[in-house]
Amino acid sequence: MVEPGFALAVFAGLCLLLAALLWPERGLLPRWLQFARLSERVRLEDALKHVFACRQEQQACTVDSLAGHLAVPSGEAAALLTRLARMGLLRMEPDGPALTAEGARSAVRIVRIHRLWERYLADRTGVPPAKWHDQAERMEHALSTEQADALDARLGRPAWDPHGDPIPDASGSMPPAPGIGLPAATPGRAVEIVHMEDEPPQIYDALLADGLVLGGRLEIVERSDEGVRVRAGGRDWTIDPVAARNVNVRELGPDAPVEAPTATLRDARPGERVRVVDISRACQGPQRRRLLDLGVVKGAEIVPELVSAAGDPVAYSIQGALVALRSQQAAWIRVDRNGAGARPEVA
């Protein structure tokens, strides 16, 4: 018979070995995959995307900007551009590198996969917004065109990514990002955020940390050299000029209310009749569709009827049916607590 202590030691060793191999992000296998994706092809694709982006935004595109963007020495950046030119994807113009038709097609393909993957992460997974971009950066090099088409079909052919950028369709056509830059918005007006650029991630993280979300509303207080002063949720703050350029907004009518209602269905007391204002943009994909299908639409009246034995979920009377929702879902549903009175008593 095997010595128990020895057997246990071998078992523990096996467990450690497996963990070392497979542990998410830190294991040998994930690390090896990470290394593999930093291949030549990935850098070429990233370079292509960079040239495409700066041409679209009409910014200067140079060897140095590419080197900075990819975090590689300028020599290597120049070599990448040369290789792309040799492949017929890029040509050198007087004002810097520009994409050929073939190059633009490849670049749009990568952009499409990137945005589809972000849409996927937003709709179908619980991955937090700050991580969408990084994961999409990885997937844009990994998915084939066929896989991207399948994903597109599965997601119901979405038109916009979760940052408000248009997703190119299979033929590659797409309009420019919607709205006007935040610095161009008229002071004193209420605006709705329609696009938030997710690159560079540091600025995007700072915007998220400031509480900005797609579909959120702001009031423009003033513009200055220090940035744009905005007001929302009862406080003022300044968004610095660099960050402000990464936010696109749509100006609302002069009488549009700035303050979004802050009460959610979660705040409603049992028996209290509330009226739905909208569903938060944080709720996307099948979850949003399900709520809409159940009748959680603007103007619908909802009454919390029953609290489950453990306190969550709560059953609500929605469009004549009794439907249980979890508190996380109830928190997505913004409601007006004054618009509807108490439950009318039926004689």
Binding site: D123, R124, R289, L306, L325
Partner: peptide, 12 residues
């Protein structure tokens, strides 16, 4: 982790 989710529970 990556699979779709959509909770609702109707009480008939």
């Amino acid at each position: 982790r990556g699979e779709a989710t959509s909770f609702s529970l109707e009480l008939p």
